[in-house]
Design a protein around this nucleic acid. Structure first.
Lengths: 246, 246
DNA sequence: CGCACTCCGCGTACACCGTACATTTCATTC
DNA sequence: GAATGAAATGTACGGTGTACGCGGAGTGCG
C-alpha cells in the first residue's frame, strides 16, 4: 500500500549502481551524509541490502575510491588531448606527456567530485597496496609500464612515480582547501572571516588571504611536475636518488 | 565506593589536557578509537564534561590539528639544526634554509603521530582559513614573514607558499601509505599480499611493490623542495607564476 | 564568617548510526 | 507449477554524538 514513496528506483541492485549512488550522494550532500541508511533510502531499498555489494561502511569508502579511479581511467581512455603549444612540444619524451595526461585526468575527476578527495587522499594510509581497488591498481600499473617503456630502471621508475603522486596529490589537496568563511556575505572582509584574524598578530595573513584562491591550478600542477621531473635524463641518473635503498 | 577504577586522573580538566589525551589515544589506538566516551573514560570523566573544552566531536578533530601544529611550532622553536654539509651551504639564502627547517619539523611531528596525518591533511578542506587553529595561523604567518623579509612580493610569496605546502604534504602522505598486507607473515609474498595481484594483469606492480618502502623520505622531501624552489631568484620572477591572478 | 554566584562536571535521554541474524520475497530452472 | 537459491527485508542490539537540566565545588563579596 504505502509503496509509492518517491525515490523508488526499482529492483536489481548491483555494485556499480550502489557506488554511483554513493558518489552522487557525496557530491550532493557531502561526505558526512554518506550513511548506510541514507544511501539505501536513495536507492529505494532497505539498508541491509547494501551489504551484499559493499562489505560494510568501510568497504563502501573503498568503493568510493574505486569509483573515483574508474572515472580517471575512463577519462584517460576516452580523452583526446588537444595539442597545446605550451605543453606538448613535438619532440617531447612520451612518458612525460603521458604523466601529464594522467595528472590532468586526476585533477579533472577531483574537480568533478571534490568531496571524495579526502577519502582518496587518506584511504591508502590504511589499506595496503595489494588491497587497493582494481582501478587504482590498473592506473598504477599503467604508469609503471609507461616508465619502463621509456627505459627507466626499477629504482628510478619508483622515484619518479612517488614524486609524481606526491606532487599531484599535494597540489589538489591545497587547491581544494577552504578559504571563504561565509559565502553569502557581500562584504569581502566578513566573507573571508578576516575579522577573526587580529591585525597585530597576523598582518601578512590578513593581507594575503584575499588572494589565496587567485591562481591557475592546472598551470601550477604541470609546471611543478616539469620542475620536479623536467631535468631528468632518459637514462638512469644516479644523482636522482639519494644514498637510500639497500 | 566504586570510585577507584583505574585511569583516575583527578580533577581539573583544561583544553590542553583534553587535547593531549586525544592525541595520545589516537597514537595508541588509531583514529577510529577517538570517541567522546572513550576519551572521557581515559580522562576519568563523564563524556559531557568534554564539551566545555572542545565544542563537539568536530571541534575535537580541529583540536587534534591544533595540537599537531602546536608541536610543530614548539619543535621549530627549540630545535637547533645541526649543520649539514649536504643541505646548508654557507651562502644559502636564509628563506630557503628556514623553509627546509619547517618542512623537517613538520615531517618529524608526522612521524611522531602518523595517525593524525589524515586529519591534518583533510581538515583544511572543510574549515576556512580564518577558522584554522591558532598554531596553524602562527606557523603560516611565520612562513609569510620569512618570505617577505627575503624580498618577495605578495604573489610570489603566495606561489612559494603553495608549492611548499603541496610538496611537503604530498610527500608525507605518500610516505605513510600502507604497503604491507599482513605484517606477521614470514613469507614476503604473503606479507605483501602479492598473491592478490594477478601476475598477468599487474606484472610491474608485483615486481615493484616489494621496493615501495625502500627510500630515504627526508632526502626525497628536501631534494624535491630544492627542485621546486631552487631555481627561483631572490627577486620577483615573472616566469614563476602563470598568466593567472588578475 | 556567611552568602551568593559562577563555573564545572554529572546524569539522563534521545536520535541516529553500523550491522548480525533470521526471515520473506523473488527470479529462475526443472 | 514446484523447487531452489539469491536478493532484499525486518527486527534487534550495542555504540555514538549531544541537548538539557542538575548538583556541587570554588571563589569573591559583604
Amino acid at each position: 500500500m504505502a509503496e509509492r514513496s518517491k525515490p523508488e528506483r526499482r529492483r536489481r541492485l548491483s555494485r556499480p549502481v550502489v557506488l554511483a549512488a554513493a558518489v552522487a550522494l557525496v557530491d550532493r550532500e557531502g561526505l558526512a551524509a554518506l550513511t548506510m541508511r541514507r544511501l539505501a533510502a536513495d536507492l529505494g531499498v532497505e539498508p541491509m541490502a547494501l551489504y551484499r555489494y559493499t562489505d560494510g561502511k568501510e568497504g563502501l569508502l573503498d568503493g568510493l575510491v574505486e569509483a573515483f579511479f574508474a572515472e580517471v581511467n575512463e577519462r584517460l581512455r576516452t580523452s583526446v588531448e588537444q595539442a597545446r603549444a605550451d605543453t606538448a612540444s613535438a619532440a617531447e619524451a612520451p612518458w612525460r606527456t603521458e604523466l601529464r595526461r594522467v595528472a590532468r585526468a586526476f585533477a579533472c575527476v577531483v574537480h568533478a567530485h571534490p568531496e571524495v578527495l579526502p577519502v582518496v587522499a587518506a584511504r591508502p594510509l590504511s589499506v595496503p597496496v595489494a588491497r587497493r581497488p582494481e582501478p587504482w591498481l590498473q592506473l598504477t600499473e599503467h604508469v609503471f609500464a609507461v616508465l619502463a617503456r621509456a627505459g627507466f630502471d626499477d629504482r628510478t621508475a619508483l622515484a619518479i612515480y612517488r614524486t609524481f603522486v606526491s606532487w599531484t596529490l599535494g597540489c589538489l589537496l591545497v587547491d581544494k582547501r577552504q578559504v571563504v568563511d561565509n559565502p553569502d556575505e557581500p562584504d569581502p572582509v566578513l566573507r573571508l572571516g578576516l575579522h577573526r584574524l587580529s591585525a597585530a598578530d597576523y598582518p601578512r595573513l590578513r593581507a594575503l588571504v584575499p588572494h589565496f584562491a587567485e591562481y591557475d591550478d592546472e598551470r601550477e600542477l604541470t609546471d611543478g611536475l616539469d620542475k620536479l621531473l623536467g631535468r631528468m635524463p632518459e637514462a638512469p641518473l644516479d644523482a636522482f636518488y639519494g644514498r637510500g635503498a639497500p
